[in-house]
């Protein structure tokens, strides 16, 4: 009788093997998440306690990362003006995949207290896909940590699919960006 130990996995199709590898990858990814903190709004004040000894997000395997190319999570903390949204889209498109977006505060959800401002957008998920929203103005640090744990669960259950949605609905996102921003690319005297 043949040993089962070394039986080649011939019955698995290419897609199934890929899926298995993704699962393995997701296991390691969700236990080692690197954040790119885009601290635009006042919600950013919740990050020092989340990062330091008070809540210590390193125990969840999370840490800050300096560049978008090496980060997994784009953390949007608070309101986004048109000017920052342009840079945010620029940053998001630079990130390597899979990439996740966590948005803190009520401002990215529905505009929050800036809902009638001429400078601040109202709904972030019209422009880039958002995986986790943490509500509150500003959200408690417990809520922020809970949001991170939620994201880990989503990765585990394969529901953190924002980056896939961005590919699938790329034209829709681009059109929304153009409608609100006019020109998406950054043009200013410091970039020319």
């Amino acid at each position: 009788m043949l040993s089962t130990k070394f039986t080649p996995a011939t019955k698995l199709s290419k897609a199934e093997i890929d899926r298995k590898w993704w699962e393995i990858g997701d296991f390691f990814r969700r236990n080692s998440l690197w954040l790119l903190m885009y601290c635009t709004g006042c919600c950013a004040i919740e990050l020092p306690p989340a990062m330091t000894s008070a809540y210590d997000m390193e125990r969840l395997g999370m840490g800050p990362m300096a560049t978008p190319r090496q980060a997994d999570i784009l953390l949007v903390s608070g309101y986004l003006s048109l000017k920052t949204l342009r840079r945010l889209i620029y940053t998001y498109e630079q990130m390597s995949e899979p990439r996740y977006v966590v948005a803190l505060g009520s401002c990215p959800i529905n505009g929050g207290i800036y809902h009638d401002s001429h400078a601040v957008i109202n709904q972030l998920d019209q422009y880039i896909p958002v995986d986790v929203y943490v509500a509150g103005c500003m959200p408690n640090t417990e809520a922020v940590m809970n949001g991170f744990v939620d994201l880990m669960d989503q990765i585990k259950h394969k529901t953190a699919n924002g980056w896939k949605k961005y590919h699938a609905n790329f034209e829709w996102y681009k059109e929304n960006q153009r409608n609100s921003l006019g020109e998406v690319d950054v043009h200013d005297e410091f970039h020319e």
Binding site: N110, D116, H118, A119, N122
Partner: peptide, 23 residues
């Protein structure tokens, strides 16, 4: 693309409603 926004006759809410989708 509008009149300068800190003039008193500029209506920020109307601008926001026109440009930014609401939830």
């Amino acid at each position: 693309d509008d009149i300068p926004p800190l003039r008193k006759d500029f209506d920020p809410e109307a601008y926001s409603d026109r440009k930014f989708p609401k939830r």
